[in-house]
Design a protein around this nucleic acid. Structure first.
Lengths: 224, 224
DNA sequence: TGGCGCAAGATTGTCGACAATCTGGATGTG
DNA sequence: CACATCCAGATTGTCGACAATCTTGCGCCA
């Protein structure tokens, strides 16, 4: 093993990789404001990297849909909008519905056991927090995340977990969309697992789509 | 207006943009073989560009899902597989189904007129080619393409028309999946348009999903 | 003879500099 | 006073070179 040449070197990761991950987190969490302009020289100085490596990171962020770049003008962080959030829900409804359908027939026993374990964990947390509790967003999302991975469709997994995932988190962080539908969401998750366990793809898809549509409706009501 | 500095300069396009588009076409059409390794120095010499600009094009191709890159190893064109093709159909079924549902309520009159025009055009072509005809792939895809754009959901449009589009075309070119379901596909398209015109989102989605699933089934039968 | 280690060549990652282009403010004119 | 023009500064796009890493083929040893 060689010693790391830079301070934060990780095996199998390039400098551009680390810049990409760091910037991604800063954009998702709003430390770099939505809609703000990105200055390549400024960021390069801040991270003590060359503009080339930084540009590689920026291009990956553009591919993720977190940045928009225009030739000879530069990059801007995407704007968050009510419309964009609702669009995200429609795409999730379609893709996670399909993921759920596939998971009903493609899941392994390990997938199912893991889903049950997560559900139990959520139930305990809910009991602790009693009535004031809201479904912690990360836990909810992990649940969805896990179902997608049980679908066995690599393209679907990549699209949801690598492409849309960070956009969802960005909206949650910055528009604070923690859905306060604790018991209801818990029951819906529970029914979805049952359908998956029964191998009923039609029902599993239907339930997941309803679940996501209910979230969307909940947001829509809040917004007006 | 300034004179172009390079031979093929286009306004509002960078060199990396052009390399990206050229390479994308070569990969989609199989001129650069699926699964083959990409040599940065070789391609840079071939296009008389620097490695930097070429690398930018390669990174965009990676974001498109046409290349896979590993750190310190290089880039390879993705492999085409039966499994990958079927995965693509499942994702399309979910997304185009949703696009169809949205188009039923979001379409403009211009969208509808354009869809009808395309359908008529297809009908004429089919009459000309009589029985031996097969539904020309590009025409079929343009139809799907147009419906997606009528959905009004920018995220959905981008995902299907910028991300998955080229992967679909790559499979069509290289595995030659021209579906020989001419009359049937034509009738299905016709019914889809009617559902969209009637504003019946449920039906429009159902019909589109059946349509795509039938294509998938057709491919699946052929493969065994 | 088969397998391991090592060195040479080639490839990828990173960097700093130069050229082309855009942005914003000052200036002049109707 | 409004508007078009132009210039200066800054930013982005492109390039060639150097350093780090991987691959390949050879030699050596059990």
């Amino acid at each position: 093993m060689k010693a790391a040449t830079s301070q934060n070197a990780v095996a199998g990761q390039s400098l551009a990789d680390r810049l990409y991950e760091t910037l991604r987190a800063e954009i998702v969490e709003g430390r770099i404001a939505a809609g703000s302009k990105i200055s390549e020289p400024e960021l390069a100085r801040r991270f003590e990297a060359s503009r080339g490596s930084l540009r590689e990171a920026l291009m990956r962020l553009e591919a993720l849909g977190l940045l928009e770049r225009r030739v000879n003008v530069g990059a801007r962080v995407v704007d968050l909008s009510e419309r964009g959030l609702l669009e995200l829900y429609d795409v999730r409804e379609a893709l996670e519905g399909m993921a759920c359908r596939l998971a009903a027939t493609q899941r392994t026993d390990a997938d199912l056991a893991e889903l049950r374990r997560m559900l139990e964990h959520h139930e305990q947390q809910e009991e602790l927090r009693a009535g004031t509790a809201y479904f912690q967003p990360e836990g909810d999302f992990d649940f969805h995340f896990r179902i997608v991975q049980a679908s066995g469709n690599d393209l679907l997994i990549d699209t949801l977990c690598n492409r849309l995932y960070y956009r969802v988190r960005m909206y949650r962080y910055q528009l604070g969309m923690a859905s306060p539908r604790a018991q209801r969401a818990f029951r819906e998750h529970s029914h979805i697992i049952e359908a998956i366990e029964a191998g009923d793809g039609d029902l599993a898809e239907l339930l997941m789509r309803r679940h996501i549509r209910a979230s969307r409706q909940n947001i829509e009501n809040k917004l007006r």
